[in-house]
Design a protein around this nucleic acid. Structure first.
Length: 271
DNA sequence: AAATCTCCCTGTAGGC
DNA sequence: TGCCTACAGGGAGATT
């Protein structure tokens, strides 16, 4: 699934192809995504010019002369730049065509993503307004995470996966970061010491930063990802390895379900 | 307020 | 081999 690094890689990939370009037409073949595709995508976009793109959490924000397009890739979504006229495949739900003969094509088999419109101040959009800091931003530090965690009895894994606490930490990275930090996923967030929170912050930043550096290779040509970028398999320490041997101590990795998410950890290495 | 549950959807893996 | 079912997962919104 597209994690934050893939989303950022996608944004960087489409940016030079659409910035400064004028939209000539939008085609919505399937409007039933996470939410219905906003009517403005077809009604308002033609004639507008793309001014810039940026990313907030896992949302791609495309600024146009009339407002912003908000795109989320869900867990199976992708965006590609293709020549206008290329026949759509089964899950190619939306095309945004440009005057220079290219189009932005949105594909999403499981339709957990969304394509929405915001005509007003984008930062005040309900989906974006209360998001936590970016994991690589300066404000995501030990003080911040420690302070936010006090009084919270939720498992620390759920805590760091809460986008209101910090954005972009998906299930894979949460499992990996907690293993790297030596913290049990089910520990109460509020009971994790400041020193251990410092390690957790460092590990989250490290795993995300690493994934961004290698993420570029998996999506470089913007052919749809199959959801399992190659770099994952080889570098995963715990995710998807329940029942297998811990790479650190050799013990058997435990696997439990935590709020519906597969959670893997080592009883010996994580306390 | 905080924690937990539900739901959206389909490709894939596993069982028989 | 082929069919059938269970499962995975981001994350908002409802519920407890």
């Amino acid at each position: 699934m597209p994690e934050l690094p893939e989303v950022e890689t996608s944004r960087r990939g489409i940016d030079p192809h659409i910035c400064g370009r004028t939209i000539t037409r939008s085609i919505v073949r399937q409007s039933r995504l996470r939410w219905p595709v906003s009517a403005q995508i077809t009604a308002l976009l033609p004639g507008q010019t793309v001014l810039s793109t940026r990313r907030r959490g896992k949302y791609i924000l495309i600024e146009t002369t009339a407002g912003h397009i908000i795109i989320h890739l869900g867990m199976s979504g992708s965006v590609r730049i293709l020549p206008i006229g290329m026949a759509p495949a089964k899950h190619d739900h939306v095309d945004i065509e440009f005057g220079h003969g290219q189009m932005l094509r949105y594909t999403d088999p499981r339709r957990f993503g969304c394509i929405l419109w915001s005509g007003d101040a984008i930062d005040e959009h309900p989906l974006l307004a209360s998001l936590g800091p970016e994991p690589l931003a300066d404000e995501f530090d030990t003080d911040y995470l420690f302070r936010r965690s006090r009084g919270r009895r939720v498992p620390v894994k759920s805590f760091i996966m809460d986008s209101h606490v910090v954005v972009g930490v998906g299930n894979i990275y949460a499992n990996e970061a907690l293993f790297m930090a030596g913290i049990r996923p089910l520990a109460e967030a509020g009971s994790v010491s400041r020193a251990r929170m410092a390690r957790l912050v460092a590990c989250i930043r490290q795993v995300i930063a690493h994934a961004i550096t290698v993420g570029g290779t998996t999506l470089r040509d913007f052919v749809g990802s199959d959801g399992k970028p190659g770099y994952f398999k080889q570098s995963l320490l715990v995710y998807g390895r329940g029942g297998e041997a811990c790479k650190q101590c050799g013990g058997t990795l435990q696997e439990v379900r935590l709020s519906g998410r597969s959670t893997v950890f080592c009883k010996r290495c994580q306390r």
